[in-house]
Nucleic acid binder design. Structure first.
Lengths: 267, 267
DNA sequence: CGGAGCGTTGAATTTCGTCAATGCTTGTGG
DNA sequence: CCACAAGCATTGACGAAATTCAACGCTCCG
């Protein structure tokens, strides 16, 4: 049994380290095994491009470990980080379902492992694993809800608040390459993204971000040592962010209402 | 034949005034007739609420004529207009597909006609009109792409630019209650939304919006008479917006890549 | 050692938010 | 029909915040 688990943990969906919180966590075992045979695990070094904006879709990608940045280039030439792909999330599903080009460029921000399901295999999911196909759709719909909420967040919250929220999300991500516990009870974050990109996610200039960070530091909410940001008290930061203690974690947490009857009947 | 057309044009999907540019434009005739029997047309006066945030989904709504505002309330109490529903678009699809609460409140901004498909009827679509069900999903995926593009637009463009783009979208909407051609070649817009809401869509205060408008007026890009905004030259405004001449119209235009093989196989 | 890239800091400018006051439009009641 | 109140829209003034331009420190790497 122990041996079997070991084998599974290195190559099986059923024992994937992020299975419990992945987009596929609700799949019946039979369908999970179908995907298990389709998927091809791959290791990406930091900086590797998973797919590029404007290129045709070639499959879907499930992040087993690591962190992926989603970058988008505007017609006017400027580009910005528009989202993060956490472990457990599936990327490329929208382009796959629409059979369209990728709208974003996905780049591994740290060393990352992804499981690839080739397009021709994923197409067979609809007959061999209908629940999995529905899960893909449900995932996109959930992402849409999050995007819309983010839109409001942009309009309603200050840059300070949004930075605090972003740091808290990283702190709660549990990424071993990013988050390290601190003796004092807080955490130390090794930011996997450059300042300029961090600024872009908030929609501000790098200098402005630097000043916001400096102010938070003066107030004791964070300490700064090179590329490492230490958060002495997550609670204090959450309070500053204007949020209640439990932090909503997009993509990972509550998967309760996903794939309701409307979809279930569609299988 | 003429008689038949007349009848259809008042109550049939096949001859719906917005069919050619609606979310359902690609449906085969047989399925369009199925929906035709399900739908119930309804007239909404300006200000009427189509559905409310937090309420359970009761069906999907196709906008036959008019304009609908999508409003969202943040936890901190502030609320803002987060989107517009144009004629031809289908609203409530995401809540229906996820069988979840509505995340937004939909309010008719001008006199509007919608066709309602009750939830119990829409559920039957998956067997009686699978293409239609797929179209619903495709619509949501397309909306997601737009939302993501809007996210980048927020970060990369100035408020001036975004206001220009918003005005141009209204100008190109072709809504008879909103857009009137001008002898000089431009158009006159009777804004269906209050200044405060317009400001909220851009993420600024009403006073700031007023000043942006004042500046555009001083530069001759628009004229202002009460609630009517006259745009003497759409081309000049498009140039100011930093866009090439053809304006991308979210939701209405090109429906080319929607519902690709990934979805087609899912029926 | 020196250059390149990244990050921070400073100063000047522009923009935005806030508070307050003033028009303008609308609808109501006399 | 007019006066009046209420709500929306604009303008002004001031402080706060963001952008821009510039300079400097730091680290990495050839």
């Amino acid at each position: 049994m122990t041996h079997l688990e070991t084998v599974k943990s290195c190559c099986g969906c059923l024992a994937c380290p992020v299975r419990s919180r992945s987009d596929w966590s609700t799949l019946p075992q039979r369908e999970a095994m179908v995907i298990d045979r389709m998927k091809r695990p791959r290791r990406l070094p930091a900086g590797a491009v998973l797919f590029a904006q404007g290129r045709p879709n070639t499959g879907v990608y499930c992040i087993r470990r690591g962190l992926v940045g989603l970058r988008m280039t505007h017609e006017n030439g400027t580009d910005a980080l528009v989202g993060l792909g956490w472990a457990g999330q599936t990327l490329g599903a929208r382009a796959f379902l629409r059979n369209s080009e990728h709208r974003t460029t996905a780049i591994a921000l740290i060393e990352t492992e992804v499981c690839t399901i080739e397009r021709r295999d994923a197409l067979r999911l609809t007959v061999e694993a209908p629940t999995a196909h529905m899960a893909l759709v449900g995932r996109c719909l959930a992402a849409m809800d999050e995007a819309q909420a983010g839109l409001l967040e942009n309009a309603a919250l200050s840059n300070r608040h949004r930075l605090s929220i972003l740091l808290l999300r990283l702190a709660y991500s549990g990424l071993p390459q990013v988050v390290a516990p601190l003796a004092s009870g807080g955490v130390a974050l090794s930011l996997p993204i450059a300042r300029g990109d961090l600024a872009g996610m908030l929609g501000v200039q790098p200098e402005t971000l630097s000043r916001i960070i400096a102010r938070l530091r003066q107030e004791g909410l964070l300490r700064l040592r090179g590329r490492v940001i230490e958060l002495p008290s997550l609670r204090a930061l959450a309070g500053e962010a204007g949020l209640p203690d439990p932090l909503p974690m997009p993509g990972l947490a509550r998967r309760t209402a996903a794939a309701g009857p409307g979809l279930a009947a569609g299988s």
